[in-house]
Amino acid sequence: MFSIGEFARLGLVSVRMLRHYDAVGLLRPAYVDPVTGYRSYQAAQLSRLNRIVAIKDLGFTLEQVRAILDEKVGTEELHGMVRLRRAQIEARISADLARLRGVEARLRAIETEGHMGAAEVVVKKVPRVRVAELAARAKSYEPEDITPVIGPLYDELCSRLDVAGVAVTGPGIAYYEAREDGSVLVHAAMQVSAEPRPGQDFLVTDLPVLEHAATVIHHGSMDEAGGSFQALAHWIEAHGHRGCGLAREVYLHSPENRDDWVTELQMEVSPPEPVTPAPLSQEPRP
């Protein structure tokens, strides 16, 4: 048998923690001296200690740990719990990193306010284009909600096009539909020349002509496109246009490194409103 100090060192926990586990009934000593009250433990109890620490470190409360241990959870089930917890932690880290990148992008947008020249925005007619697409709903139009939706959509779309033998004829195009509840329907599309066929597990459709589109080229990850969108908005307002809906994104160059992406943002706009000249003032006759 081992004293509580020896057992704590063997189990890589503190004596205080062993006393707490004893107090809440999670891990009782194998023997307690009736005179001194000294606790003693057996090596076999390290197995239960390992399970307690592992389950607790997965984020469960001690009450939940007791319930899990009472169900005699096996090693394979513990591994499954670890895999699930790892996925949750990785998702949280990814979301936190995306939020941090968003803050940094906002700061860069603030630093560059007013420095984007008008020559960088081009108004043009965007022709009708045939695409194959998949769509899914995102919680909002914010990058941290769009990115986790649009990436898997494109992966799945490209896989389905490959299985169907449909060739891609041009760069990918993403477009969005705002919903009344604040969510956004995300359309991930690839340009194709195929005809719609029964049984296809993707939609083949024609994106309509944009008679007047204010366009700008964004360099870098779309998570950091806020500055380009805001510069486009300033240009549209300054030149007497009105924006119509959410912008299309045409991925002109999308290598594995997102920092090297080149994307054309296309926002449909109304023609500029004509300027009514001020009436000439008439001086009174002498």
Rank of each mutant, 00 (worst) to 15 (best):
M1V: 04
M1R: 13
I4K: 02
G5S: 06
E6H: 07
R9N: 08
L10K: 14
L10A: 08
G11S: 09
L12I: 12
V15N: 07
R16V: 14
M17V: 13
H20S: 15
H20D: 06
G25T: 04
G25R: 06
L26E: 12
R28Y: 01
Y31L: 10
Y31N: 12
P34N: 09
G37D: 02
G37Q: 02
R39A: 07
R39I: 07
Q45V: 05
L46T: 05
L49T: 06
I55F: 11
F60C: 13
T61C: 12
L62S: 11
Q64H: 12
E77M: 08
H79G: 10
M81V: 07
V82E: 05
R83Y: 10
L84C: 04
R86C: 09
A87F: 01
I89P: 04
A91Y: 01
D96Q: 10
D96V: 06
L97Y: 08
L100C: 12
A105F: 08
A105D: 11
R106D: 08
R106F: 14
L107A: 14
I110Q: 15
T112F: 04
G114L: 06
G114P: 10
G117P: 05
G117R: 04
A119N: 05
A119C: 08
A119Y: 14
K124D: 07
P127V: 02
R130W: 10
A132L: 03
L134A: 09
A135P: 03
P143T: 00
P143R: 03
L153G: 08
Y154E: 09
E156W: 08
S159P: 00
V163L: 07
G165L: 04
V166G: 10
V166M: 03
V168E: 15
V168Y: 10
G170N: 08
Y175F: 14
Y176S: 08
R179F: 02
R179Q: 06
G182M: 02
V184Y: 03
V184L: 03
Q191N: 14
S193E: 13
R197L: 15
P198K: 02
Q200Y: 15
D201N: 11
D206N: 03
L207I: 00
L207A: 01
P208M: 02
L210F: 04
E211A: 13
A213H: 02
A214M: 05
I217V: 15
H218D: 04
M222Q: 11
E224Q: 10
G227Y: 06
G227S: 10
G227D: 09
Q230Y: 11
A231K: 01
A231V: 03
A238M: 00
R242G: 11
R242Q: 15
R242S: 09
C244Q: 14
G245P: 06
L246G: 14
R248N: 12
V250K: 09
Y251P: 08
S254W: 05
N257C: 06
N257I: 09
D259S: 08
T263A: 04
E264Q: 12
Q266V: 00
M267R: 12
E268G: 14
V269H: 02
P271V: 01
P272C: 00
P272H: 01
E273L: 10
P277D: 00
L280P: 09
S281E: 11
